[in-house]
Simulated assay, not measured.
Amino acid sequence: MRNKTKWYTFLLMIMALALILGGCSEASSNMDSKGNGGTNSATTGATEQMSVSENKAVTATEGAAASSAEAPSAVGGSADGGSVGEIAAEGTGTGLNQKLIYKANLTIEAVDYDKAATALRNAIHQASGYILQFQDGQYNGEKSSTYTIKVPAAGFMDFIDRLDGIEHKKFERQISGTDVTEEYVDLQSRLKAQQVVEQRLLAFMDKATKADDLVKFSEQLATVQENIERLKGRIRYLDNNVSYSTIELRLYQPEAGADTKSVEDGLGGKMSQALNDSVDAMVTVLQGLLIFVAGALPILLLVAIIGLPIYWLRGRHRSKQSFRAHVKPPIAPTAKEDGQEEDPDQPKG
């Protein structure tokens, strides 16, 4: 009996141990399944977040690339920047919001004045510019003309390079720029402030019931509107000068052969120069004398017309007086002097 009881007890213990081991394995399997599920969910969420972040990063990168690709076309040149024309275009762009005014002073000594003037007008037309002022003339055999030209700022340097292509002996240029961004921003701020004051004064005038108040508001409004127009005019002036650059140009051609004329050295050259100077001085004196005679000729004729008859009459009168002085009348006989006899042959009386 004792052996059976022990054996039975041993079997019960084995079954109980088997049940315990089965429950533990089940719990561990459930826990593993739950843990794996949570890990998968977390991994999925992280993956989705990473994909979203990557999409945003790609979008931002594409936007930056697009912006960098569009930037050169927006400012009119590469990011390195180079010519003055590109800088002027950047000044007119909305990206940097800079206001730059460019001006150039050019001097061109042309080989053929007429051809150079024609090429200049063609260059102005091709650059979509216009002539603001023009003056020409010829002094001492030299043909010369001055221009004040306005060209678009974007083609400022291209226009100067085109002028450099004109056939010339000498080409001088001086380029300067002025940054008016600060003044432009200040003008816009003042304009907005004046416009706000204008709106307030208009509102006060609508609500005014007294004639005195209405008159005061009207005077103040007139002053504010005058300031607004002055600010707008200055802004328009700056916009025009920023959009169109100014070029002061002098085009000339010296007298033919003037560049080959040189001063000779030595005694012979100095003697020749002195002789030429003497001849020139004599010619100048003769010219002045002829001019004086031509100017005094009417007066000389008048003096001759009046003076010659007077001179002739005075000469005749003097000749008569001299003739009378030389011709004496006969002397009449006198009575017999003391101790002398009268001549019987001599008539009396």
Rank of each mutant, 00 (worst) to 15 (best):
M1Q: 14
N3F: 04
Y8M: 07
L11Q: 10
M13L: 15
I14Q: 08
S25R: 15
E26G: 12
G35F: 07
G37F: 12
G38I: 12
T39A: 13
T44C: 05
E48Q: 14
N55D: 14
K56Y: 09
V58Y: 06
T59H: 08
T61L: 12
E62K: 15
G63Q: 13
S67W: 12
S68N: 12
A71E: 08
P72R: 08
S73P: 02
G76C: 03
G76T: 04
S78Q: 14
S83F: 00
V84Y: 06
E86P: 04
G91I: 08
G93I: 05
G95C: 04
L96A: 14
Q98L: 15
Q98M: 12
L100A: 01
I108A: 02
E109D: 06
Y113A: 07
A116V: 02
N122M: 00
N122V: 01
N122Q: 05
H125F: 03
A127H: 04
A127C: 03
Y130E: 08
Y130I: 02
L132P: 00
L132E: 11
F134E: 03
Q135S: 10
Q138V: 15
N140R: 15
S144P: 02
T146E: 03
I149T: 04
M157W: 05
I160C: 01
D161Q: 10
L163C: 01
D164P: 00
E167Y: 00
K170A: 12
K170P: 02
G177T: 11
T178S: 07
D179K: 04
V185K: 09
L187H: 07
Q188G: 02
K192L: 04
K192G: 01
A193D: 08
Q195H: 04
Q199K: 13
A203Y: 02
T209Q: 01
A211E: 13
D213I: 00
L221N: 11
T223D: 12
E229T: 13
R230Q: 11
K232G: 09
G233L: 10
R234Q: 11
Y237V: 13
L238S: 06
N240W: 09
N240Y: 14
N240F: 12
N241K: 10
V242G: 03
V242M: 05
S243I: 08
Y244I: 00
E248A: 07
L249D: 05
Q253E: 15
A258H: 06
A258T: 11
D259L: 09
K261T: 06
K261Q: 06
V263H: 06
V263C: 02
E264A: 14
E264P: 05
M271K: 06
S272Q: 13
Q273F: 07
A274M: 03
A274R: 04
V279D: 05
G288L: 06
V293T: 13
P298W: 04
L300Q: 10
L300Y: 13
A304C: 09
I306Y: 07
G307I: 02
L308W: 15
Y311L: 12
W312V: 11
R316F: 09
H317M: 10
S319N: 14
S319M: 14
S322T: 09
V327S: 01
V327M: 03
K328E: 04
A335I: 04
Q340K: 10
Q340T: 08
D343S: 05
P344A: 08
P344W: 02
Q346F: 14
P347Q: 11
